[in-house]
Structures are given as C-alpha cells and as structure tokens.
Design a protein around this nucleic acid. Structure first.
Length: 584
DNA sequence: GCCCGAACTTAGCATTAGGGAT
DNA sequence: ATCCCTAATGCTAAGTTCGGGC
C-alpha cells in the first residue's frame, strides 16, 4: 500500500490570544497559541550544553568472546557493539529474526576486515561470558557500600547542578533530558522493522547548540567542536542532534516545571475548555454531515464521531516499512473493524481491533447510530481488507475542517476535552461526602481509571503483580486477626468491672485498627482494578490539573495524596490558581 | 495542493531510590 | 543494618501539528 500524503493546514486567523496573568514563577506574558513557530519564545537563554555518554571501556581480557567455539579477540569498535547485544541476551528481543538480522548487519559494519571475514554467522557467536560479566557488574553495583553509593549520588548531584539547569529570561529552569542518549541497539515498540539496528554514539560534532547571542556559550569538550551554534529564539530547545535510525531530530528541552512548558500546558487546557463551549454545535454539525451527498464529508463526519466518542487519535499516515504498522482514526483500514447489525441484543455494533500508538491494541465493541453504521457499510463496499476505511480523508483535511469550526481546534483537543470532562463528571458522581479520605481517594482513582480506559492507556501487568497482591492479602488477614483480638479485649474490658477503666482506650484501639483494615482493603481494591491500566499518562497529559486541585480543596484532601512531588512541580500553576469552585 | 521536516506532546517500560519490614 | 517492595524517576520511542518549499 502506498503512503497517502497530506498537508498544508490553513493559516489561522482571528484572535485567540491568551493572557497569562498567573505570576508566581511564571511571569506575565502574552503567548499567542496559533503561531507556535513564529513567536519569540525567550529573550535570553544560557546553558552548559549536553552531558555526553561516557566513553566505551573495553572489557577486561579475561572476559572472552567465542566464535564457533573458539576464543576470539575483538577490536574495540566491534567489541563495543557486541556488548550491546550481550547485555540483552536475556531479553526476548534477541531471539527475534528481524532484531538479529539488523543487529548483525550493523555490527559487521563496525568490524575490521579480518573480523568481517571470520564472523559470518550470528548463531556461532557466543556472548555468554560478556553477559555474565555485566550481570556481575550490576550485582557489584548493588553490593556497594553506603559510602560508595553516597559518593556516586554526590557526583550525580554535581552534574545535575552544573548541566541540569539553564537560565531562561531571568529564571533558573530545570532541563528535562540534559544527557545525550548513549549508543546501543534500537528497540522499537511492537513489530518494528528496524529493531536491533545500531544507534550510534553522538559526538560534539553532531550537536547543534541553541542559546542567546549575549549568553556565555557552552564549550565543546576539549579538542572537539559543535556542529553549529545558533541563536533561534523562536524555538524552545537548547540542544539538538539527528538520530541515525529514523533520521529524526532529537532535542534537549526544559522540564515540565518550567515556565515555557507550564504555559503551553495551560493553553492546551484552555483550548479544551473552549471546545466545551461549542462541542454541542460541532456534534450537531457532524451528525448532519453523516447525511451529506459528498462522500468526503460523510467520511470526515464519521471519523470525527469516532474521535469524539471513542477518544481515538488522529491517525497520520506512516511510511510503510519504516515503523511498526499502527493506525489511528484517519488511517483505519477495513480490516480493523467488523460490523454487526445485531450483537448481544444490541443493534448496529462496530467491533474495533487494531494496534494504536506504541503498538497497544485497541479492542472495543460499540453500538453506534444507525446512520453511522450505514455509512461504514458504504465506505467498506468493494474494498480489500487492507484498503483505507476513510479513503477520502486524512488528518490534514480533518484538522483543516476543525480549524474552521473553532480557532485552535485539532483532533487531539477532543482527547483532552473528553478526558478532562470525564474526570470532572466521574468525580461528581463517585465522591461520597460521608466517606473518609482513603475511600475518597479510591473514588478519585476510579474516576482517573474511567479516563484511562477511555483513552486506552494500558500497561503490561507488573511482573510482581500476583505476589504483591498476595502480600497485601497477608497484611489484611493479619489486620483482621488483630481486629478480632482487640474486639475480644474490649468485650472483656466491658464485662470485667476491674478493668473497666481500660474500656475507653480499648475502644479507640478497635477504632484505629478498623480504620487501618479499611485502608488496606481499599488499597487492595484499587490495585486489583488497576492491574492492566496505566493512570499516569492521563494524569500527566490529559486531565486539567485544576479539576483535581479543586476536588482536593473541596473535600479537604491534601493535594500530596493525588500528586507526587514531580507532579506538583509540573502543575504548580494549577495548584496556585484553582480554588474549589473551579469548573472545567 | 502536496510533500517533507521541524518542533513539540504523549507514551509505556526499565531502572533507581527510598521507606517500611525484618 | 539489610533486605525487599513499591513508587518515583528516567529514558527514549512514537505520536500530532504546523510551516515552508515547490
């Protein structure tokens, strides 16, 4: 199938200017949402540049590599790449054909002529001594003394203080990823055609530095030079380089706690709130469009219905063979849905089954409106399974249309909007004023869970899940035991006049234990329900933090129960801003 | 209008840290 | 003091969006 291309989104007009009045660490400023690329992002930017991966340390000579059963000494270049593979021996990756093929091809490129001539078959390579060496190394690291660990910690802290911060417009801001990605073997997600390829080491000569002219420019390591030093204040990144697997650009940017990220995040939620105001109109419009005489408009309207109702991603085209075969809404193929005029007593059911972002499976059976169903039948007529479902549509066309419906509206805004509004509704519905704090937090997590399910944020069940459930159950059993003991004691205290004076303290003991038991039980329920669901992604990226802050204030829940330290830093703007009356 | 690439957000898994249990 | 487990953090891949060039 060839790649359909897209593009050119219409220049936005109108005035969507958002004034940031918040000013704690965030200075008052204007940032127009629409011109991401054209507006000044900073006036002054100074930083120390990136931290490079440590140089390769050759293996000690007693750690041997064997080819075809015989010891073979590798050149440092070939050895380094071999160690990347050796470190992964326990991983399933190394058994996969594509991974092995890609690795071997790239490894051979690093070999000397002699090595290349000799090493012709990966199956004859024995990396096990290397593998054991690295395992021993990591054991040794774990077994280090307190002092040694402390020393490492202090060294890291020093590096963090030196390279982990920059000055942007009078503020010292935390940098997100100031370390350059070390070389290694590429691990794509899912069935990635490039898995196993060598991710090459990044050198100063690959690095573009971005900082302000009047700042103290970062120095490249002695004897090296930067690829370029530029002064582009229309972008937010400090450092960039081109990665060799996909040829894409990687960036060093600021931490989510920074002014520049916080403002952007705020804007995102403000756009979603504007959608709230006009979503009814938009829904009516696309329902009308299901009846359009133009196929492209019907397709657009059905796709938008899916994006709205099911929180699907936009679904850009992807170049075949370059990445795993995954889809979103606009790139759905006929093979990804099944139509059931009737299913389990429901009419017009659509079954979705496809791999989405990160090759996470989306499986869902949903009843849809008759008109949607009929349209889908129409779109599927005379098509092969691997044909596009929406052959007259792509993300560019869809977003152009959305832009006309509301300034700043794109497909992803629906995900933000539906996630946030769902949290707000669910919190209203699930929070019980009578309940104690742990129970309220369970309600919060359940509301969060509803969103995660909507957005299909899944996770592999933790490897230790069963065991950790068991541990918790053991604790609960012990607590129950303790409770009945305490109750028995209370009873006898009541009965026995001599110990009567103990009654009060026994009573409060029972109460305390009951509370502890309840807390454990809530924890067990929460954990069980969360087995395959990841709450973090929605919490961090889709839920307007002001909803959570307002909820905490309303019910007297410490915000620390909902957001950990990092999250509180990221959402400082919201914690500062929202009162208990905040409405998304 | 089409295509490409830059910039930025979103994503799950791996590793580490630190707090409670022993 | 050490061990063990969970929660937090780190890492980097994989998306979306938009502007620019033709």
């Amino acid at each position: 199938m060839e790649k359909r291309k897209q593009r050119k989104s219409q220049r936005r007009s109108g005035n969507g200017e958002l004034i940031m009045s918040y000013s704690c660490t965030i200075p008052t400023c204007k940032l127009s949402r629409r011109d991401t690329q054209t507006v000044v992002k900073w006036k002054f930017l100074e930083h120390k540049g990136p931290v490079f991966a440590p140089p390769y340390e050759p293996l000690p000579s007693n750690v041997k590599f064997y080819y075809d059963g015989k010891v073979m000494r590798l050149s440092p270049e070939a050895e380094e790449v071999a160690t990347f593979f050796a470190k992964m021996l326990d991983h399933e990756y190394t058994t996969k054909d594509i991974f092995r093929k890609n690795f071997f091809k790239d490894w051979r490129k690093e070999m000397t002529a002699e090595e290349k001539a000799k090493i012709t078959d990966l199956k004859k390579c024995n990396f096990s001594e290397m593998n054991e060496f690295f395992k021993a190394q990591s054991e040794a690291r774990k077994a280090m003394t307190k002092e040694e660990k402390q020393k490492i910690k202090e060294d890291n802290e020093r590096i963090l203080q030196e390279y982990g911060f920059c000055i942007m417009d009078n503020h010292r801001e935390r940098i997100a990823n100031f370390r350059i990605e070390p070389p290694g073997l590429f691990r794509g997600r899912g069935d990635h055609p490039k898995m196993g390829m060598l991710k090459r080491r990044i050198r100063p000569e690959d690095i573009i530095i971005n900082c302000s002219k009047d700042s103290k420019h970062p120095e490249p390591p002695p004897g090296t030079r930067w690829k370029e030093v530029r002064h582009d204040n229309k972008v937010t990144w400090l450092v960039s380089w081109t990665e060799n697997i996909q040829g894409s650009i990687k960036y060093i940017m600021l931490n989510p706690s920074s002014r520049i990220k916080g403002e952007k995040d705020w804007q995102k939620y403000e756009t979603a709130r504007r959608l709230k105001k006009c979503v009814d109109r938009i829904r009516n419009q696309y329902r009308e469009d299901w009846k359009s005489k133009e196929m492209r408009i019907r397709q657009r309207a059905v796709a938008l219905y899916f994006i709205d109702k099911l929180a699907l991603r936009a679904g850009n085209e992807k170049e075949e063979g370059e990445t795993a075969d995954t889809v979103g809404c606009c790139s759905l193929r006929v093979e990804h849905i099944k139509l059931y005029p009737e299913n389990d007593g429901q009419e017009y059911v659509v079954e979705f089954d496809f791999l989405g972002k990160d090759s996470i499976r989306y499986y869902n059976k949903v009843p849809v409106e008759k008109r949607v169903f009929k349209n889908l039948q129409l779109f599927m007529e005379n098509k092969e399974p691997d044909d596009d479902l929406f052959d007259r549509l792509n993300t560019s066309i869809l977003n152009k249309h959305l832009q006309e419906l509301m300034d700043g509206l794109t497909a992803k805004v629906f995900r933000t909007y539906n996630a946030s509004i769902t949290l707000q509704q669910q919190l209203k519905e699930l929070t019980n004023a009578e309940e104690n704090i742990p129970a309220k937090i369970l309600s919060y997590n359940r509301a969060n869970r509803a969103v995660a399910i909507l957005c299909n944020h899944q996770r592999a069940p933790p490897k230790t899940f069963e065991k950790s459930m068991q541990n918790l159950q053991t604790k609960i059993d012990a607590k129950r035991e303790q409770l009945s003991d305490a109750k028995r004691e209370l009873k006898s205290a009541k009965a026995d006049a001599k110990v009567r004076k103990d009654e009060k303290s026994k009573k409060s003991a029972v109460q305390r234990i009951e509370e502890q038991l309840m807390k454990l039980e809530v924890q067990a329920t929460d954990r069980e329900e969360n087995k395959q669901i990841a709450l973090g992604t929605s919490k961090l990226n889709y839920l307007d933090p002001r909803i959570s802050v307002a909820w905490c204030k309303k019910w007297g829940i410490p915000v620390e129960k909902i957001y950990n330290k990092t999250q509180r830093e990221k959402f400082a703007w919201a914690i500062d801003m929202a009162d208990e009356d905040f409405e998304f």
